[in-house]
Lab assay of single mutants.
Amino acid sequence: MASDGVVVEIGKVTGSVGTTVEIPVYFRGVPSKGIANCDFVFRYDPNVLEIIGIDPGDIIVDPNPTKSFDTAIYPDRKIIVFLFAEDSGTGAYAITKDGVFAKIRATVKSSAPGYITFDEVGGFADNDLVEQKVSFIDGGVNVGNATPTKGATPTNTATPTK
C-alpha cells in the first residue's frame, strides 16, 4: 500500500443473489490541510450489481451534504461517478479525517463476483488547492465463495486525467 498520499479503498462485503448490500468507500491518509475537492470514477458490471443509491459517509460534515457531495450512476456506461467540492468557501466542510467517504447500496443480481474497480481520477486537492497523490484499492461483493480481489494492489495516480 502507498505510504504517502490519500488511499481510496472500496470495501469488500459478502452478499447473495437478491440481497441488498452496503459497500463502503474509505479514505485513508487524509492530509493535515484536509480535502477540499476530489472527483473520480469507479467501474462495475450492472449485470452483477444493480447500484440503487449512494449515501455520504461520516467524513462528509456539510450539514447539507447534497451541496458538497454528488454522485451519478450510469449503468449503460458501467460507471459510478463521485464528486466532492467543499461548499462553505472557508474550508469548514472539508474532509479532515480518515473514514467512510461514501456507502454504495447495491442489489446482487448474479452469482458472479461483484467487482467495483477504479477507472479514472480527475483530481484530489487540499484546502490550499494543492494537488494530492492518490491511490485506489478495488473491492466489491463476495457472492458465495467468490472473492472480488482483482486489482487489490493500489493504483498510483500522480496526475489528473480527463
Score class of each variant (00 low, 15 high):
residue 88 S to D: 03
residue 133 K to S: 07
residue 10 I to A: 04
residue 127 N to I: 02
residue 110 S to M: 11
residue 136 F to R: 09
residue 124 F to Y: 02
residue 97 K to T: 09
residue 109 K to A: 09
residue 84 F to Y: 02
residue 62 D to V: 14
residue 115 Y to T: 09
residue 134 V to D: 00
residue 95 I to N: 09
residue 9 E to L: 08
residue 10 I to T: 07
residue 67 K to E: 04
residue 152 A to G: 12
residue 114 G to W: 04
residue 58 D to K: 02
residue 117 T to W: 07
residue 116 I to C: 08
residue 63 P to I: 12
residue 124 F to K: 00
residue 70 D to S: 14
residue 152 A to Q: 14
residue 63 P to L: 15
residue 68 S to Y: 14
residue 29 G to L: 05
residue 124 F to D: 00
residue 124 F to Q: 00
residue 79 I to T: 01
residue 91 G to Y: 10
residue 95 I to C: 13
residue 122 G to C: 01
residue 59 I to Y: 07
residue 88 S to K: 03
residue 44 Y to S: 06
residue 78 K to G: 13
residue 150 K to Y: 08
residue 95 I to S: 12
residue 42 F to Y: 02
residue 52 I to H: 07
residue 148 P to V: 04
residue 121 V to K: 13
residue 92 A to G: 12
residue 109 K to P: 08
residue 7 V to E: 06
residue 9 E to D: 06
residue 47 N to C: 09
residue 79 I to C: 02
residue 60 I to H: 12
residue 79 I to F: 15
residue 138 D to V: 06
residue 5 G to V: 06
residue 151 G to W: 11
residue 69 F to S: 07
residue 107 T to G: 12
residue 69 F to Y: 11
residue 16 S to Q: 07
residue 30 V to W: 02
residue 50 E to W: 03
residue 51 I to L: 05
residue 20 T to Q: 03
residue 157 T to W: 13
residue 60 I to Q: 12
residue 43 R to H: 05
residue 4 D to Y: 07
residue 32 S to A: 08
residue 49 L to I: 04
residue 142 N to M: 09
residue 135 S to A: 10
residue 93 Y to G: 14
residue 24 P to Y: 03
residue 23 I to G: 11
residue 108 V to H: 11
residue 8 V to S: 11
residue 122 G to V: 00
residue 22 E to S: 07
residue 31 P to L: 03
residue 8 V to E: 06
residue 30 V to P: 10
residue 119 D to C: 05
residue 114 G to E: 09
residue 103 K to F: 11
residue 125 A to T: 02
residue 139 G to R: 08
residue 155 T to A: 13
residue 55 D to T: 10
residue 73 I to N: 07
residue 24 P to F: 10
residue 104 I to V: 08
residue 77 R to E: 03
residue 1 M to V: 13
residue 71 T to Q: 02
residue 101 F to E: 03
residue 118 F to E: 06
residue 138 D to L: 09
residue 132 Q to A: 10
residue 143 V to I: 14
residue 28 R to G: 07
residue 92 A to C: 06
residue 143 V to E: 10
residue 125 A to V: 01
residue 107 T to D: 10
residue 80 I to M: 08
residue 144 G to H: 11
